[in-house]
Amino acid sequence: MAFSSFRYTLRDAFRSIRRHKSMAFASVFTIAISLFVLGSTLLLVVNSQNLVSEMESQVEISVFLHLDVDRKDALALQKDIEKLPGFDSLEFIPKEKALANMQNRFGQDTDLLGALGGNNPLPDSYRIKAQSSDKVTALAKELEKFPEVESISYGKEWVDKLVSFTVMVKNVGLAVILGMLIAGLFLITTTIRLTVFARKKEIGIMKYVGATNWFIRFPFFLEGMLIGFLGAVAAGIVIYFGYGAAINYCLKTIPFIPVVADYDLLFRIVGLLILGGTVIGAMGSVIAVRKYLKV
């Protein structure tokens, strides 16, 4: 394209936005709302995922060893446990500490050890964490196979519920994001189509005077790109500051619920929205114009 053509194109795109202010504003607003809802959904999903993984990390398996396993063998077991699939971390609890814990629970007034005749009936044990809740059951089964292990315990039912909840959050989150994406795309292209429809006469005249399709398309392309960009920036600003405020509020009022206070992630989401909005605006315009180019 010659320089003069490019110059006209640029000027036409800006003039068109200026002369169709209300239409351009409606488009920017629609895009901003769509992307805001999409971005919020994304953050909501990220947070519920985070909540679930927080809960997952608290699932523990208690492994009790046989009483006759001596300390050396008990400690040696650690290496084998660490090799198991799904293993995350462990804590060794010697029988003395287990007894001390129990003593604490009964209170210092009682002489627990004395009552037991000087014998500690408690075994050495491990507290083991799995990488995620869905790996707990498999890990527990592996642990049971060690000859040194007498018994294991973990909240099986609770773990199962957590696993199905995690899966649900993932699926629902994905479905909501996908739905919002489609709804947003549809809304945006419809708005742009309306803007283009209002100017189909202009496109027709351009065809009559012998403008090439690209010459006709390009101002719409630029205009759509600019409108998409502005809408996305508006949505990005609201999300960035809105989420920042929401994090602060949550940390103050409900500190026990973990929120994702990761500004890097927030930046990436806002960046993605701006990129997405710009691309959708440009593509939507070109697609909408195509219909009127067939003269």
Partner: peptide, 11 residues
């Protein structure tokens, strides 16, 4: 001017 611009005429 539009008809000229559409065919890339210099300003």
């Amino acid at each position: 001017a539009f008809a000229l611009e559409a065919v890339g005429t210099p300003v």
